[in-house]
Design a protein around this nucleic acid. Structure first.
Lengths: 220, 220
DNA sequence: TAGATTGTTAATCGATTAACAATC
DNA sequence: TAGATTGTTAATCGATTAACAATC
């Protein structure tokens, strides 16, 4: 296959999730002065198999690696950032300025991941019109108007579970096509809408289950 | 297989992640007055296949379902909560009282998921000895002493990426055996330590990749 | 050259789905 | 009884790993 066609290699969801970890490690290597890296080296650092790393990198690297020398760190960083869309920033709105919402609003790291939260919304009058880290909180009534005017595509939901579906519907009405849902509910949406669930309860489920298994084993 | 041996059916990680969503839906049904639910019904609500739901439920339900009538909602809720360990609360400490750390400290929902954050730690003098939602922030020097005295098993890491490995090592030194890591780095740990990564960058990677694919398709 | 490393094809593993018998 | 629903076994699908040729 032509090098220039590399970009069409499909990548698994699992692999996509590994990319930010690779990126982090590669940047650390670069900052320590290194130029080249092998898939074996990355694999060892992250406790993965070298073949897996090579396959993942094959999907994102334009130039590929070279036998004996490995991959160019700088090139890999650029390719991964590019692949993940960190270079072209997407605008997003956030609905629900509670604790979690505020944490996300005040998190300054998103821009480097290609996400800029341009406005927040809430229906609590005590929060509306306040300013959280430079981002204004608007009343829900303005959602549609602002989303359409700013051509925002991503909506972040940080409202309680029972309000999430309603907020979701409003976001879609306002032209949002990708939703990052932090409420612990399944959202019913039309097929063409992208929903990504960030469920702390689900993660915790895994952790506490593993812990329970471990503690049980120890007792036996 | 004997009903009483049901509890030994193994469950996939994926299934474990679905359980909290089932739970949420089941509680909603219960609150609306329902008694019984079929796997088809749950599947339709959550856009899954009915067989998958049945298989997941088979792993957690003690009594199982009954043909024609389905599953008892109350029993399922109890079994899932039990399976996920929501009933016996685990104590945890949190290290890193920045924005994200504060959000987690002030999140009141954890107790119902079986997690109680008993103390927070930070090395920033401006935060040390302050009180966040009833939880005291201690200096890092006290980590070992407090973890050992309270017999805490879970550590939550919400420090910047470059400090995470160091904090992780300190936690393990203090007797922690399960780590919930919110820093976007791979942590190197001994085999017997459980690490669960919560990487916002990784999630965002998936979302923005899907969005990019979608926007590209639309343009074509 | 020798050997470390890449990239690819085939084999394996795990999770989901299809098919169907059992049951109320 | 008829048919909706469960639970299980076999088939499929997707992701990881093993094996190995190609290359610098």
């Amino acid at each position: 296959m032509e090098k220039s066609q590399r970009e069409y290699i499909s990548i698994s969801k699992q692999a996509l999730k590994r990319l930010p970890y690779y990126l982090n490690y590669l940047k650390k290597l670069r900052d320590s002065g290194a130029n080249k890296v092998s898939s074996t080296m990355i694999a060892k650092e992250m406790h993965l198999s070298d073949v897996q790393v090579r396959k993942d990198l094959a999907a994102v690297s334009k130039t590929g690696g070279r036998p004996r020398t490995g991959f160019d760190i700088e090139e890999l960083i650029m390719c991964i950032e590019n692949y993940l869309g960190y270079n072209n920033i997407n605008d997003a709105v956030l609905v629900g300025a509670g604790h979690l919402g505020r944490a996300l609003l005040s998190y300054s790291g998103f821009e480097s991941y290609g996400l800029r939260i341009v406005a927040a919304f809430d229906n609590n009058k005590d929060v509306v019109n306040t300013n959280i880290c430079g981002k204004l909180v608007f009343p829900m009534e303005k959602l549609n108007d602002i989303c359409r005017r700013l051509k925002v595509h991503i909506g972040i939901i940080t409202v309680p579970a029972d309000a999430a579906q309603n907020v979701c519907d409003q976001l879609i009405d306002s032209g949002i096509i990708a939703i990052w849902n932090f409420a612990p509910v399944h959202l019913s949406v039309n097929e063409e809408i992208i929903v990504h669930n960030e469920n702390i309860a689900a993660s915790l489920a895994l952790l506490s289950n593993q812990l329970a298994v471990k503690l049980n084993r120890i007792q036996k």
